[in-house]
């Protein structure tokens, strides 16, 4: 009895701790960040000046060779005021760093909260039925030998992502691109984590934009909660979705 009280204290303080810090991670407090978001400064200037010089040279060389008098032009085209594009360095790259940390934190929270959910349930059962507590705990142990998902169950999951994914059709080499994303779901079918199987850092621009469309798809509000056969949690708590464009033109 003393043992369980002790445990209960540990758990509770743990929960409180997580809530204290977790809310920070999750941004639940809605603390408004006043940090300046860095801006890439682009002045529309020099670049085009250089280009128009080049063009001038070209013109001269053509002119020399030709003495034909041109027909009259009614309205001379006004060349566009050449915008001048001059890139200054991005002021800071802090934003990226912050982002990465955020991600890490998020992951931690995800894992912790799923653990907590389960532990809380276990705890409730403990309080209610002191005598049968061992059994209860045992029954909560996930069933490793559980049934696999049937094809139709997989199809139901698959279909739910279709409306969330805006296909980036028409981009170059689209038929050669496939993007895998790993999803983590909680027992209610909420998507609580998503990660690309491969980072797109070194990949082509086409791959990057497909990858981003995939990340938007799995974070689409309509795909936040997935209809799943609840009993088979073990089978679908980690899902890898492979978005493949080879059939799409």
């Amino acid at each position: 009895m003393i043992g369980s009280l002790f445990l209960s204290i540990i758990f509770h303080s743990f929960i409180i701790l997580v809530f204290l810090f977790g809310s920070d991670f999750l941004g639940l407090k809605k603390k408004i960040k006043l940090t300046d978001i860095p801006i890439e400064v682009v002045e529309i200037a020099k670049k085009s000046e250089a280009v128009s010089k080049k063009i001038e040279k070209k013109k001269e060389s053509i002119k020399k060779k030709n003495e034909y008098t041109p027909p009259k032009i009614i309205e001379k085209p006004k060349p566009p005021e050449f915008a001048k594009i001059e890139k200054k360095k991005p002021l800071e790259k802090q934003q990226k760093k912050i982002k990465k940390e955020d991600l890490k934190n998020e992951k931690k929270v995800d894992r912790l909260s799923s653990i907590l959910n389960t532990i809380e349930k276990i705890k409730k059962n403990q309080d209610k039925e002191d005598i049968v507590k061992d059994k209860t705990v045992e029954s909560k142990i996930p069933d490793f030998t559980g049934e696999k998902l049937t094809i139709s169950e997989i199809d139901i999951i698959r279909r739910q992502f279709i409306p969330c994914w805006t296909v980036p059709a028409g981009i170059k080499d689209v038929s050669k691109i496939s993007v895998s994303v790993k999803l983590k779901l909680d027992p209610d079918g909420n998507v609580i984590g998503s990660k690309l199987s491969r980072d797109y850092g070194s990949k082509s621009r086409s791959y990057k934009s497909v990858a981003e469309s995939v990340l938007r798809a799995v974070k689409h509000p309509a795909c936040k909660k997935i209809q799943v056969p609840k009993k088979k949690y073990e089978m679908w708590k980690n899902i890898t979705l492979n978005f493949d464009l080879s059939d799409i033109d």
Partner: peptide, 11 residues
Amino acid sequence: SEVRIDITEGN
């Protein structure tokens, strides 16, 4: 032990 699902269509 995770499920792998191919998604070959979207909107």
